[in-house]
Every structure is written in C-alpha cells, then in structure tokens.
Amino acid sequence: MDEKRRNIILNTGIIGSAMILGTNIITPKASANPQNQGQIGKHQLPPLPYPTNALEPYIDARTLELHHGKHHKAYVDGLNKAELELEKARENNDFSLIQHWSKQAAFHGAGAYLHGLYWESMSPNGGGIPSDKLGNLIEKSFGSINSFKAHFAAAAKAVEASGWALLAYRYSDKSLYIFQVENHQKLSPWNVAPIMCIDVWEHAYYLKYQNKRADYVDGFWNVINWKGIENKLNNIIKEG
C-alpha cells in the first residue's frame, strides 16, 4: 500500500476509534499530574516513555504511533465513558444498564492499564539479561532464564485470538507467575501484581509482521526493559 493512502486512512481514523466504542471522545482537562487523582472519568493517556521510532526495527514507528495515539487512547476514553455512566446510574438510582457498563469498564479499564504496562515493559536500551536480583527470582520461579523465556514466549504465541501474556509477582508465595489474558481482562488470576507484559492483539504487530506473531514475540526480547521490570518488582515488594 502506498504511503499516501496510509496517511489518508490514518487521518480519518480518529472518528473511527471513538465510534468503535460507541462513545464520544472525552477531552481530558489539562493537568500537570498524569494520574486522574481519583476523579471519576478523568483518566488520561500517559505519554509514551520514548519516541515512536525508538524501538525500531523490532517495533516500527507507525505501529507505535497508532497503537499509543489511537488504540491506547480509545481505551482510556472508553474507561472514562463507562465511569461517567456508572456515576450517572448511582445519581439516578437507575442500574438497568449495570451489566453493560460494568463490562465496558472492565474491558476498557484493563486495556488502558495493560497498554501503560506494555510501554514500560520495553526500552530502547532494553534487551540483554536481567540483573541478579530479578534473575534469581526468575530462576527460582521457572528453573532458569532460558526456561522462563521459552515459557513466556510460548504463552504469548499461543494466546487465543486477541490478548496478552503477562509476568506477575504472586504475593502468596513471593514468586513470579506467567499467564495469558484474552482480550484485556479474561483469564486474569487474582493475588498477583503484573510487572511485565506483551500485547499480542493483531494491532500490536500487523503492519510489520502481518500473520507472523511468532516473529514479533521473538523480537520482543531485544527491547525488553529488564531494569524497569526490576524497579516495578522492588516497589511491589516494598509496598507489600
């Protein structure tokens, strides 16, 4: 496809991403704080922690631009919309659509959260091996770094349809745990804190890898942000 046509599609995609949720785009109020400070319906799209071309050639700039600017944003908007509708339901004491908006909040809320975790799971200075502390916990939990990588990659490649593979810290036995997620919220276990993830929705890799999800997953190890993952783990352990 020629670049001109791609641009036309990109430029007209804004309306589409809002319509796909059946919602209106909610413009977040300007705030120095990227968090919503607990205000209902005021979640904001966090900035990408690096330029869109920073993960080339493993993840191309065009994909990151669309993935962050359109897909991730649509999930943040979808979460805000659902929260506002739930607030309205409480105010009117009318819960007739509670199931619908609860599902919307779960899907879009999980999508908004996981995309943030995904950006942080990667770095232009990524790849290599984890530090001793994280490496030791990985070895304790999975036998070796290589078995962990084989397990995680296999989980990611085999997610049914759209979904994610996650690495999480499990509080009960203080070990690490790998799981698959379908869509953004199905198959999720409890009692765990996610520390790393890979998105295997087709939108994460289709422009560069098309149907070859396995090649995309294999390329992920070149940009994995071991330092950021260890920081996240340390914070979780500290906060208990």
Binding site: I9, S17, Y206
Partner: peptide, 16 residues
C-alpha cells in the same frame, strides 16, 4: 471483525 480483516486497509478504524 478480527483486526487482520481490516488493519492493512483501515488501521484502527473498524467502523469505516
């Protein structure tokens, strides 16, 4: 409406 059905031609714009 799998993304592979429309991503090359429409990107994220499924409604289009």
């Amino acid at each position: 409406v799998w993304e592979h059905a429309y991503y090359i031609d429409y990107r994220n714009a499924r409604p289009q």
